[in-house]
Structures are given as C-alpha cells and as structure tokens.
C-alpha cells in the first residue's frame, strides 16, 4: 500500500514530561521512537505499546551538557547516536532498559547541529557551529575525515545514496559536496536564496536547515526560509531549493502559501518521489511537493508549531516534535477504526 499524503492524519500523540521537544528519529526496525528535549533528555517510546495505550510513558535518559540537535539510529536499531551542543557525539544502546553512554566523542567545538549515517551504515557525518564537517567510523568512533571549506556554521548534513559523497549545508546558503574516498571538496551548490543578512537588525538569518538527496540520487534539496523581513520577530516563509545533481543547477524553488511566520525545520525525500517538509513558527504543518511543483501539492496542518521531523523506514509514518511536550505521529494512509 503506497503512502498517500492526502490521507495524512495524526494517529498517535505521545507526551514527554518536558516541553520543548526538538529532534526525533524512528529506529529503522520500527520498534522505538526517540525525541530530544530542551531539558537535555532523550525520550524513547515503544511504538507498539504507545499505539495501544496513549498514556504510555517513555523512558528518559541523557548525558549531554547541552541540548541535542540531532539523533541517528543504526539500521539494526541497536545503536542511537546523539549530537549535542556540548561538542559531543554520544553512542547509546538504543534498546537498553536504562541506556547509558557506550562512547563519548568530542567531535566539534560547540554545537553539533546535524548528523547523518551513510547508506551502508558504516560512517557518520557531523556538522556544527565550528564550520567543520567531520566523518566518523560508526563502529569505533574514530575520525575518518575533516572538511573545513564551509565559511559559516554547518546546519545540515547528508550522504548521497551512492555513498561516495557527503554534503553539508551552511548558514550562508551554500551546499558543499566532498568526495569521501579522496577526502576532497568537490563543488558547492548555490542555495543563496536560503540566506539573508537583515541590515536593520544586523543579523544573518536562514541557512540550509534541512538537506536531503532523492533516493535515486538525481536531486539535492536544501530547505529553510526566505522573505525573512523580521528575523528577530519570526517573520519568514518556508522555501526548499531543488538542484540537479549532475549539473548542480537550481531547477525549482518549492514554496507554499498561507504561511508568513514559518520555516522548514525538517525534510525527507520519500521513496515514492515526493518531498515532505515539517514547518514551524506560529503554525505547524507538513508540506508535500512533487518534482514539478512550485507551491506544495498538499498541506497538512498540525495542531501546533513543528520543530523536528522523522519518517519511518516504511515511509508510512511521519513523526514531528513540538514545543507543547508532544510528538505527533502522522500516518499517510486511511484512518483505521
């Protein structure tokens, strides 16, 4: 049964004891859902139990001295990796009753904003406020590569599905491509519409906040915001930029209507070929675009502003984190009784 965005509905509403939830991830085997929170905890829900009992209590654990801006779970569902604002990557036993850190790696100076696992699951890419993108061995946490070509903070990282390239999107609106085997910078995709310098407020704003590559490897999409006329006052609109992988040319600007205080916080390139983005600001929503769409072909309104987003491995469920202590799981299929 294919996923159908037009059937989107919130099927599960999970509650943490903390408000201000941030990143989230499904484990690829479909057993658990993880979310990080502003109280420095990670919450883990058993999806099967939560589906039966809406009051199902999550397991909470943590060891970072800061917020966690991103999470990753290995393909076997056994290892969770958290990226903190305290320089550290932490490896966790994802299924343990009371998870304790397996490994702590001082990976960056300051915030680690984004991490991603390679298609074969052997490498982990991380990017952060120190403007560095680093590649790590998942098995032992050793550093494989360190790339320094970004001029501003790296907000998002992704691997190309061929496993040969790693990408990092920065605050300046540049998407850098590095060749992993050669350990070299290859080129940059110009995503400048995602960055603004607001003169009156003297602030840089925007950046490539989400970065995905289509499963067939043909498209690179960077997401964030534009029209940030009042960055400090939360005035901006969501924007996703689609690039052709071969030519690195910008081919489409995916926009939406009806949102003047929102930006993209999370994005996913669905195996069925559509793009989905979670937006937040004053309102929350999921936006869906096909390759040829300028405005989204479907918008699904969420009950409150969204922050992080993750998609289950079968592509049927989208989890979004919210400020109001909730993780909402939206299903892309018809409601069941």
């Amino acid at each position: 049964m294919p996923a159908d965005p037009k059937l989107a509905h919130v099927a599960l509403e999970l509650t943490a004891e903390a408000r201000g939830l941030m990143a989230c991830r499904f484990d690829p085997v479909g057993k658990h859902l993880f979310a990080s929170a502003e109280n420095r905890s990670i919450y883990r829900w058993k999806l099967e139990a939560a589906a039966k009992d809406p009051k199902h209590k999550p397991v909470a654990f943590g060891a970072h001295e800061s917020w966690m801006f991103d999470l990753a779970v290995t393909a076997d569902g056994q290892t969770l990796i958290s990226a903190g604002g305290d320089d550290q990557l932490i490896w966790w036993p994802a299924s343990a009753e009371a998870p304790q850190p397996i490994r702590k790696v001082k990976a960056h100076q300051g915030w680690i904003r984004s991490i991603a696992l390679s298609p074969d699951g052997k490498l982990l890419a991380s990017g952060g406020n120190d403007r560095m993108l680093r590649v790590w061995n998942v098995a032992d946490g050793t550093k494989v590569h360190e790339f320094s070509e970004a001029a501003r903070e790296i907000w998002s990282v992704a691997f190309h599905p061929d496993g040969k390239s790693v990408l990092g999107g920065d605050l300046d609106g540049k998407i850098h491509q590095w060749d992993i085997a050669a350990g070299k910078h290859v080129r940059s995709f110009d995503a400048a519409p995602l960055h603004e310098f607001e003169k009156g407020q003297s602030v840089h704003y925007g950046g490539v906040r989400a970065l995905v590559v289509s499963t067939d490897g043909k498209w690179v999409v960077g997401g964030g915001l534009h029209k940030g006329t009042n960055p400090l006052g939360n005035i901006q609109q969501p924007l996703a930029l689609r690039f052709d992988w071969q030519s690195a040319k910008l081919t489409r600007q995916h926009v939406t209507t009806g949102f003047t205080n929102e930006r993209i916080w999370g994005m996913h390139y669905h195996a069925q070929g559509f793009l989905v983005a979670a937006i937040g600001g004053s309102k929350g929503a999921l936006l869906f675009w096909n390759e040829g769409d300028d405005p989204s072909f479907h918008t699904f309104a969420l009950p409150s502003t969204a922050r992080g987003m993750a998609v289950s491995s079968d592509g049927m469920q989208i989890a979004t984190t919210h400020f109001d202590s909730k993780v909402r799981v939206t299903k892309l299929s018809a409601k069941t009784a």
Partner: peptide
C-alpha cells in the same frame, strides 16, 4: 551593538551577536 531583541531563535542570534 545591534541587535539583541531575539523573540525568535534567541540562541542562534546570541551565538552570532
């Protein structure tokens, strides 16, 4: 030195400013 009126994304802007 301007601007610190960070109703939105206080932490990103304070990191910068």
């Amino acid at each position: 030195h301007s601007n610190y009126d960070t109703h939105n994304e206080n932490f990103n802007f304070h990191f910068e400013q």
